[in-house]
Nucleic acid binder design. Sequence first.
RNA 1: GCCCGGGUGGUGGAACUGGUAGACACGCAGGACUUAAAAUCCUGUCGCCCGCAAACGGCGGUGCGGGUUCAAUUCCCGCCCCGGGCACCA
Length: 1124
Amino acid sequence: MEFDFSKIEEEVKKFWDQENVYRVEPDPSLPKYYVLDMFPYPSGAGLHVGHPLGYIASDIYARYKRLKGFNVLHPMGYDSFGLPAEQYAIQTGQHPKITTDKNIETFRAQMDKLGFSFDWSREVRTSDPAFYKWTQWIFIRLFHSWYNCKTDRAEPIESLILEFAQNGNAGVDAVSDQVSTFSAEEWSNFSAKQKSDILLNYRLAYIADSWVNWCPALGTVLANDEVKDGVSERGGYPVERKLMKQWSLRITAYAERLLQGLEKIDWSDSLKESQRNWIGKSEGCSVRFEVNGEGGTPLHRRGDGGEEDTLNVRKPGGYLTGEKSLGSILRDNARENRQAPTEAEEMLWQNIRNRKLEYKFRRQHPVANFIADFVCLQKKLIVELDGNDHKQNKEYDHERTRELERLGYKVIRFWNDEVLKNLSGVLSKIRDELKARPDLLTPDPSPEERGIDPSSPEKLFIEVFTTRPDTIFGATFITLAPEHELVGKITTPEYKKQVDEYVHYAKNRSERDRMADVKKVTGQFSGAYVEHPFSGKPIPVWIGEYVLATYGTGAVMGVPGHDERDHRFASHFGLPIVSILKDVDVTEKSFDDKQGILANSDFLNGLEVKDAISKTIDEIEKKGIGAGKVNYKLRDAIFGRQRYWGEPIPIYYDEASIPNTVEENELPVVLPEVDKYLPTETGEPPLARAKDWKYKGKFDYEHTTMPGWAGSSWYYIRYGDPHNQNEFASQKAINYWQNVDLYVGGDEHATGHLLYVRFWTKFLFDLGLIPFDEPAKKLVNQGKIQGRTLLINEELVQNPRTQEIVYHAFLSDGIKGKVSQYKLDGSFYTRQTQWPIRPPLISYVDKDREILYEENLKKAIEENGDIAFKKESAQKIEWLIESETNKKYIKLSWAPDKMSKRYGNVVNPDDVVTKYGADCFRLYEMFLGPIEQHKPWDTKGIDGCFRFLKKFWRLFNNEEGKWLVNEEEPTKEELKILHRTIKKVGEDIESMSFNTCVSAMMICVNELSQLDCHKRKTLEPMLLLLSPFAPFISEKLWQQLGHKESIVKAKFPQHDESLLVETSFEYPVAVNGKTRVKMNFDLNLSNDQIEKEVNSAEALQKYFEGKTPKKVIVVKGRMINVVV
RNA sequence: GCCCGGGUGGUGGAACUGGUAGACACGCAGGACUUAAAAUCCUGUCGCCCGCAAACGGCGGUGCGGGUUCAAUUCCCGCCCCGGGCACCA
């Protein structure tokens, strides 16, 4: 038979389908093995050659494990909710389900061509109601759970309610946002709404005002991991911080376990490191500094009670959300503004307060992250007054207006003068607007309505978090974040103006601005002092934007001697810098290392840093001014998305606006149909458009949907029992298949999916629903296959003063280095650059030879004009070229780059398969190098694999299609070749070193061809070795050998070590480390005998240069080294 | 800045716990078969030196500079470069 791969692949595929060879069921008599690929999102672009890399690797491994006698679960499905389909829906009006289904079809067709051994009967799709029913079910479980620090696990909320009813919350040790305590009696007297609000502070799924990453362009919030460098990961749109009511998951409860769990799983170092970074644990200590007035007069706490949280001592496993403290900052600020209204503000206020215009107005009220001058919440109407300085803030105000409008507010503005001169006109305009706006029945309660406002005189403390408590005697100042809630309270009157200005400045800088110039030192003295808890000395309190409000307590003790940032701050403002380590000078530079002997530190003197840290914590705890404390960077995961194409959150709101979960027997909450996939006019998410979509016909459903990572956080469990209608998976399936043995996927999911799936797994484990607490024992990150981007080398000679380009040339790759001779004159400078050739220019390039002909470039310029360089320079083009047959051209260089449709460098696997076959494609992708490594796609090397397959085929069939296999006994040499290969391939598959497997098989086939060996007894085992890599051709040849059952069901050969034993070895003999000659010795000879022979060896005498060898080192079976 | 990876021919890459650096493959050069091409096969291919040439031989060589060792791509110290993660995280 002829080697016609497309016919073979077609035939074999049919055979597999008929025989259902990849179907698996639990079988207690066999050991299981679970190989999983990361869930693909079915994008419209289909697969490119980079995608299947991981699938091929996992498929080889799965097939190998099957041959080794394991019952292998190897499923595939689709993460089919997601933004791109929805963006497309918004543009075209087409339902995302239609697009998604179509894309899935393309994906499936592409995957089918590649010969994967997936059990497709187990396919799941996250957007399938039968699947997301259980995603919703798990959400409900999260909602009805809290994290008990005493037992260090999640528990049903009922146990907490019981505790509240019996003992109040004082004895509860939970990860929560609850700050105030209450007794059992108080609990019983709380209204249903109050109880609900309190429980939300404990639930693992909760709704609360949180600072979120709002992406206006996508119209949704994003999780932290979906934001990179201030822009959205998908699409690259700007993201801003915003305070919103949001569903979140309390992943922070699991911070420590997520960190510890990394120790026991076999994942790559870099991935574990990313997760560790993301969790960001730091151990240290909180310290409270008492605030004194200048003259030692204590300042008194004023304002909000219920805010003692900044002073709280950490409960194990707990943490403090910085975002929450920002909320109170806004409120504080609002309160201050209220006390100093302008004349116009006051006048307007007197005329609209107390429902003078029928509706209740509030002044200086926080809305999102702004403070509105006046707002009517019932009508979502904001009235802003602008002074004369308004012009400077025009842009800012514009932004703010847009943002508020997005939230459904209407903003109207008046000038101060208008109010003063034409009050009645202003009032009637406001009245008109009020009339025109729809009524909102449940206005948000104001902070005053929500909280209590006892103004009991109390001492003020600043609490800091530090990882270096040992440096406490080196603290020469305290710095507060500008947003810190104490800023307004401690600032002394004479510094009020400067502080206000500074805070205003700092607040108006965006995150990105701050990130951009971190080196810039800014700050402001508050006038206040705190008392050093040990020395009693006064320490000034500063405000500086280098302190983050969201980390720790939003305040630091400035230790300029031993913290680089503090040193910069202190040097800039002339604050004292002291060293607390013996013989360490810190005047120029801080000494941040945790080593040395303490000095200038009272009771710490003479101690090592490490001992000093624990000693200090002891003392601090003894004094009751702080405690050892652990901080995590990890934040709770925002779970709601203002999007259509996602799982509905199974929550409805009752008459009292209390969130309740939908009855389990009513799941799934099916995604309703909507007329448009856009937010409503009032800024509600798209689900608000759904007609008559009410729970039990009357209650509002939650309108946000779940994020993309919801379904993928547990899908691997579903594969074990994908069609179960009564449970998320049966206990039988879960107990048999357990967790994933080998998980293959990209490292871009390090801090997203892979953290969330671990979180959900631990949660389900806590509830006793699964018997394991990690999703995957071993995880391999496949590298990306990069595209090739062609680069053009360009040189400019430029006049530095006029910037005029006087000379401009494209350089051929080979003569890049020779440009200096073309410099015109010393006063000009040359610049060499390379830029990528992208569409449309790419179409003018001879891609096979990677050259650009002069005529084509000229044509490109003519047809497209300004392609990638300035016209004027294009006219000055000169050439440093190579030429062949009088045709001028530039040889281009290239570099690996992202494979992307936009860059015109995408290679479609279908094309490769058509040309070389799937087997060859699989083999080549593996042959390219280690799977974890990123590597550029280059079709040039694929011929080698193609030749190998043909050669392999020709061991069975000759060119005329004649069958060559015979039944002769293999020779010893042939057996040795075979068994060496079996050993090598077996070992290398185990260690996932697939490239060397392919090499080993190539060597084997080369050798067998050389020996003209066509013996069944050598070829049949070879076929089994090849079958995980090239399943089609292997199956075909297997059939030709006369087997009726698929090769998939066969057994992997076992190598026979005895056949590999060599009797002698050709030793390289080195003299003084340099290999000189080769000598053959029997492996049974003793080292002494070899030494004797070597010493007298004729061939070596000349290297001894007459000296006698001092020593002979013999490494058995390796080499011999003679020392002279 | 900190933390992880990594740096080997023209290219992708190989080298077990320190033991013949460059396996295997691509590309290139030459040759065989052929009217020719494709396909296939054979030979050579790290650099430099000696040499008409080949065999043979010599020297250097795994980012750079040191060190340990009989022996270093591998271990140690110091640096440079590339990729990735985190980033005023106290």
